[in-house]
């Protein structure tokens, strides 16, 4: 019961995050979608730890690693946004066609 609740909520959050990644035009908003998807993965891991293997701490460690990945994604993403803003004056992906070959 509890496992079903957690996994369903994580599935919905993952879907919302994916929708955001595809539909948003701003780099920072796209990163928010990625964060939401990673958060859904984290919820799954905590639910698996608590309800299936409460004595396997590798699962808690995995949550810590996902949290690290979230922080790294934010740091590198903001660095890219900073460089993009410096050189082009905007972080809109609609205006990033110059990254494409022959554009």
């Amino acid at each position: 019961m509890a496992l079903t609740i957690c996994l369903s909520i994580a599935a919905v959050l993952f879907g919302i995050g994916l929708y955001g990644v595809i539909s948003q035009t701003n780099l920072v908003m796209i990163m928010m979608g990625v964060e939401l998807m990673l958060a859904a993965a984290m919820l799954n891991l905590v639910a698996f730890w608590r309800l299936l293997h409460p004595h396997t701490y590798a699962l808690q460690l995995f949550v810590l690693v996902v949290m690290t990945v979230m922080a790294l994604e934010a740091a590198v993403g903001f660095a890219l946004a900073t460089q993009r803003f410096r050189s082009r004056g905007s972080v809109e992906v609609e205006e990033a066609a110059d990254l494409k070959e022959n554009a």
């Binding site: 994580a10 599935a11 919905v12 993952f14 879907g15 994916l18 929708y19 955001g20």
Partner: peptide, 10 residues
């Protein structure tokens, strides 16, 4: 895509 992926995971 969002709804499809969500339903698949669900």
């Amino acid at each position: 895509v969002g709804i499809g992926a969500g339903v698949l995971v669900l």
